[in-house]
C-alpha cells in the first residue's frame, strides 16, 4: 500500500523546523526516524498534510558528555546509543533498552527522540530514561523548556508537548557512586520483538554494602503510559538490599500494575501482573549487582 499524499520539508536547523511547525499547525508531523510514522501513514492512522523531516539536522545528532551530563540529541539513532561505550559504561540500562528496540536495521533509523515522543506504552527507552531521571528539552519558535520525563507522557500517543514544540535533547545526569540499574523486556521471540512487558529498576546505595537511599522502578505495557511504581520504590528506601526485600518490592509492583487484558492484547492481565513481579525482582537484582560493582 502506498503512502498518503503530503508535502515534504527538510529544514536545516531546529529554528527552521520550529518555524515550519508553527506555520503548518497541527496537520504537520515531525519525521524523526520514521520507523513508527511510516507505518502509521501507510495504514492511514496518521494523515499529515506536511511532513517535517528532522534527521538531517546536525545539531540534533550530538551525543555530548563534556558537561558531566549525558546530552543526547533527539535524532541520535538507537544504533549509536547501543554502540556507545560511554553510554554502556554509565547508563547500561539505557543501552539495554536500545538493544531491545526492533531489529538492527530499525535501530539504524529509529531515534531516541522518536522512541520517546511517539509515547507508546511498549517503547523500550522510556523505562530506563525514567529510572535515570532524564529531562527533556522542548523547543518552539519563541521558547524552550525543560521537563522531567516523569511528567512527559499523558496517555498512549499523547504527551505534554504542544503541537508546535519539538523534542530536541534528552539530558541525563551521571548516576551517583554505588548506584546501578537494570532493564528487561519480555517478548515472544528472542529478539526484535514487540514487548509484552518491560521493566527498568534503579537503586542507589548509601555507600558500599549500605542501605538503599534511592530507588526507581518503571514498568511499561501495563497502562496507557509508562508508570513509576512509587509503592515499591518506597518500600526499598532505607532498607538493606536482600532477595526477600526485592521479592516484596516485586509483589508491590505487581499489586500496583493494572494491565488491561483482552482477547486481543499481547498477553492476559494475570500473566502481565505475574511478569511485573518477576521482571521487577530480576531488574532490581541487576541494579544491585551494578551498584555493588564488579567486585561483587
Amino acid at each position: 500500500m502506498s503512502l498518503p499524499e503530503f508535502d515534504f520539508h527538510a529544514p536545516g536547523s531546529v529554528d527552521e523546523a520550529c518555524r515550519m511547525l508553527a506555520e503548518y499547525g497541527p496537520k504537520a508531523k515531525i519525521f524523526a526516524g520514521g520507523t513508527d510514522l511510516m507505518l502509521d501513514m501507510r495504514r492511514r492512522r496518521i494523515l499529515p498534510e506536511n511532513v517535517i523531516s528532522i534527521p538531517g539536522i546536525e545539531e540534533l545528532k550530538t551525543l555530548d558528555l563534556s558537561s558531566g551530563m549525558l546530552k543526547i540529541g533527539s535524532c541520535v539513532t538507537i544504533a549509536r546509543i547501543v554502540k556507545s561505550k560511554e553510554v554502556a559504561g554509565k547508563w547500561g540500562a539505557l543501552c539495554a533498552g536500545g538493544k531491545a528496540l526492533g531489529s538492527c536495521l530499525v535501530r539504524n533509523l529509529a531515534t531516541v527522540g522518536g522512541n520517546i515522543a511517539s509515547a507508546r506504552p511498549a517503547a523500550d527507552l522510556p523505562p530506563p530514561l525514567m529510572v535515570y531521571g532524564a529531562s527533556l528539552v522542548l523547543k518552539k519558535t519563541s521558547a524552550e523548556r525543560v521537563v522531567s520525563i516523569d511528567h512527559f507522557f499523558t496517555g498512549t500517543g499523547a504527551t505534554v508537548m504542544a503541537p508546535d514544540e519539538i523534542l530536541t535533547e534528552i539530558r541525563l545526569s551521571e548516576p551517583p557512586p554505588h548506584s546501578g540499574a537494570g532493564y528487561l523486556n519480555l517478548g515472544i521471540r528472542n529478539a526484535c520483538d514487540i514487548n509484552i512487558l518491560n521493566v527498568a529498576s534503579y537503586v542507589a546505595l548509601d555507600g558500599p554494602g549500605g542501605a538503599i537511599k534511592d530507588a526507581r522502578i518503571v514498568m511499561g505495557c501495563v497502562a496507557p503510559t509508562h508508570v513509576r511504581v512509587l509503592s515499591a520504590e518506597n518500600l526499598l528506601l532505607g532498607e538493606k538490599p536482600s532477595e526477600a526485600l526485592f521479592e516484596r518490592a516485586g509483589e508491590a509492583a505487581m499489586n500496583a500494575a493494572t494491565p488491561r487484558g483482552s482477547a486481543y492484547s499481547r498477553a492476559s492481565a494475570e500473566y502481565k501482573k505475574d511478569m511485573v513481579k518477576e521482571l521487577t525482582v530480576r531488574t532490581l537484582g541487576m541494579a544491585l549487582r551494578e551498584a555493588l560493582g564488579p567486585a561483587s
Binding site: 527538510a10 519525521f31 526516524g33 523531516s53 534527521p55 538531517g56 539504524n108 533509523l109
Partner: peptide
C-alpha cells in the same frame, strides 16, 4: 549504514 529503504522517503 544498512537501512530498510521502505522506511525512508525518497526525498530524504
Amino acid at each position: 549504514t544498512p537501512v530498510n529503504s521502505c522506511l525512508v522517503l525518497a526525498m530524504q
